[in-house]
Design a protein around this nucleic acid. Structure first.
Lengths: 348, 348
DNA sequence: ACGCACTCTGATAACGTTTCCTGAAAAGGC
DNA sequence: GCCTTTTCAGGAAACGTTATCAGAGTGCGT
């Protein structure tokens, strides 16, 4: 005889406690306007029966669902999982739950995820748009009745507020750093080029090179270890080989690093390496790898905070509020100097 | 004039389409028993109005919420985020959403999270219990009306099915591997010892050492780089220093590795290193680190599959089913031989 | 004693959906 | 052409909660 019946309802609790449903409801919601005696009694019955209010019914009465949706490319990606962790913390602080879905950077899957989340009546959404330009996404967002915040990548036309790293400045700064150190042939390995962030970083690299009167050399072919090996080997054996590599994303950085180790190219003596985006063991590998660090948790945190700000704001006055809200928050990146760019003389 | 009104309802759609609410409902749910003409018409109206059924109302009618809850220590932890990713994929395949909360290994926070999720009427739960023995947790689980699966760590008394790596066998195998290679003084660095998984691994280590007639030496003091440095330095300068280190968790492995690098102890010549749990760059660092790899994604996947199996099973016959279901799934670990344990002669 | 203000309590109507069940119309069999 | 069967459509109840309103009990001032 399993206890697996249907969960108890307000009326069952009310009957068991010998009171009305209203009283039970009041007890649940803070116990105002209930005599201390009944409050205590009802509370006891509630605990005894293990009663938990049915959120669905509450929602139906026009209340918030106390859930927010997060649509990211992948949950396992350290960048986005840190983001998610921070967002979840903010959600929890606001008494809400976080529903996470993975779009795998597929616009179609992303739309579907958004629709499902909307159907579940989430109070708000945080999304890392697979494609900033997608018309379908813009249509969806335009007709949406809940607030949305974009993270990592904006939506075209600033349709919704966005929270992102300053990819352009970060990349420009990184490139400038290499230039300042006297590297003469700085090439940039982009990895895939479809993403907004990568584009911005490419712009940053180009801007710095241009400003220094140096030719920008971008290689967009690196997708895995093999292609990295081919690309780097070609560059080394070609005319005018590079003396520094700037990689625009984690995986590319690691591929490049492994290839350089494999080819016994001394880092940074024969080849400096600087990567965009920090990662767990960048300081453990030898030589340690210098990177541009993004404020990962901050992105998730600020996005969630912005979301709840809108959520709470909506509760109050319907007064003009569109003008004041920032449409885009760009967070500063930071150069972490380790060994691979040749800044710190040696060891540590 | 923002479009931010309340979302349309069935009756509004019905009115706009000139049909009854029942018909609209039927159209939404597959369009059975509706003439092709009306179906097409209503569908058109639905699309035009951007109507999305209110899940809360559906749930209230006794339907599933199409959500499952996941309670893990941290979302940012690579182990659990991979787990979550796999679980989310299974959830998606079953037309459900995944709600993720972080317990930070705090039993109190864990209970609270569970209660909130239950209140939201999730269809099922996956949880990595902070404390397998917690009475409060067991009470909660006993009275629960939805299926629960434990991951990574079981609940005492096999109260709910659990999906975990075979920590004992994995650790025993790892230790045996070191023994077979002729290491004479194998010490074990545990890291924190409160977790079930660590206990199992300690058991495994002890079992192998005992079987080989060698003295088990456990050091439980390593919590960060500093303590690792102290511990290892003490062992090295003490009498009868170890020639192999077996670490029971990721962070401990990395601390030990960094300390050995720092102290210029050649790995594996002067000191072999073998860690429990694989990590991203274990193959990139030099020397690459041998590890016991857990089937991370599989844990998440199997747990979710088990959960949905129960969910779907419950729909059908109420026949005897408790006997057949496995109460515990132990998944095999795998030794990944890299350089740090001295197996592969050199390089690669 | 009487009524008034106040506190506490409960019945009832929503919220948006689906599920009965009842009807009507069309299709088919003689 | 009439009756039966099938197909399609809609009205109303129900899910569990909260908000509104009205009722009952208490203490107080007059």
């Amino acid at each position: 005889m399993k206890k697996r019946g249907t969960p108890p309802t307000v009326s069952e609790v009310a009957r068991a406690a010998g009171v009305g449903t209203t009283t039970v409801s009041r007890v649940i919601n803070g116990g105002d306007r209930v005599s201390p005696k009944t409050l205590e009694h009802v509370q006891r019955v509630i605990d005894a029966m293990g009663y938990r209010p049915n959120q669905a019914a509450r929602v139906l009465k026009g209340h918030r669902t106390k859930t927010i949706g997060l649509v990211i490319p992948s949950i396992a990606d350290p960048f986005f999982s840190s983001c998610a962790e921070a967002a979840q913390a903010v959600a929890q602080a606001n008494d809400s739950l976080l529903i996470v879905t993975a779009s795998h950077n597929d616009p179609h899957s992303e739309l579907e995820n958004l629709n499902i989340l909307i159907s579940h009546r989430v109070d708000g959404l945080i999304v890392a748009p697979a494609n900033s330009q997608s018309e379908a996404l813009q249509d969806l967002l335009r007709r949406l009745s809940v607030p949305v915040i974009a993270v990592d990548r904006p939506v075209a036309d600033s349709l919704v507020p966005a929270v992102l790293s300053d990819n352009f400045k970060g990349a420009r700064f990184a490139t400038q750093h290499l230039i300042d150190h006297g590297y003469k042939r700085i090439v940039c390995l982009t990895g895939e080029t479809t993403l907004f962030t990568i584009h911005e970083r490419m712009r940053g690299y180009r801007a710095a090179m241009e400003a220094a009167g140096m030719p920008a050399t971008l290689n967009t072919s690196v997708k895995d270890y093999r292609s990295a090996e081919y690309a780097i080997q070609s560059m080394l054996s070609g005319p005018n080989p590079p003396d520094a590599i700037f990689t625009l994303k984690n995986s590319t950085t690691i591929y490049a690093f492994e290839v350089l180790l494999k080819l016994n190219v001394p880092i940074p003596k024969a080849m400096a390496l600087l990567g965009f985006d920090d990662f767990e063991l960048a300081s453990t590998v030898r030589p340690s790898i210098s990177v541009i660090q993004q404020p990962v948790e901050e992105i998730g945190r600020v996005a969630a905070e912005l979301l709840f700000e809108q959520l709470l704001g909506k509760r109050g006055a319907h007064a003009p509020q569109k003008a004041k809200r920032p449409r885009m928050v760009t967070l500063e990146t930071r150069l972490i100097q380790r060994s691979s760019c040749g800044c710190t003389p040696a060891g540590s």
